[in-house]
Amino acid sequence: MKLPESFYETIFLFLESGLILGSLGVILLTNIVYSALFLGFVFVCISLLYLLLNADFVAAAQILIYVGAVNVLIIFAVMLINKKQYSNFFVYWTIGDGITLTLCTSIFLLLNNFISNTSWSKIFLMTKPNLVVKDIILINTVRHIGSELLTEFLLPFELMSIILLVALIGAITLARREKKIELEKNDFFNF
């Protein structure tokens, strides 16, 4: 589907403003439940951003994992904790926060400068001169990702299964109720 460039730009602006406002809401709101809900909003905005960039698989994964699993878990945890609300955000402002703010802002500006100075399209043209842009858009991404996972990225893909197995075992180990132990005096005298 071919749409005018200005249409994409408008949607992009909306998404970006949603992202920034949502992230500000996550940090600035005093009620932690609202913060958690705003976090979900930010995740949805990010997935829409992926969709705008033609990355449909990543967008779906983002919604499934972050909104569907992570955020729901966070909200559950928040509801179970039931902590008292902070009265004012700026009460806890210290010199350390100021230093961190300046550092983060300068790193942000620096990175911004570097990113905008790099000519990404030129890199693409120089490294892959034969590829036509139209072909890339028409590739079925899900099929492409699947075939790449089982050919080029076979080893990390299989290693991921080991990681998942260990994560499962680890989660069970951490959550399992242990038998109460009685410290026997013999334990120390055995060796």
């Binding site: 990225f153 080893l155 990390p156 290693l159 990681i163 260990v166 994560a167 680890g170 180990t173 951490l174």
Partner: peptide
């Protein structure tokens, strides 16, 4: 030998270390 494998195996090592 590629960035994905490096990252995945690093996480494999780290996850076990945390546990």
């Amino acid at each position: 030998n590629d960035l994905v494998t490096i990252f995945v195996s690093l996480e494999c090592l780290s996850l076990c270390s945390y546990l």
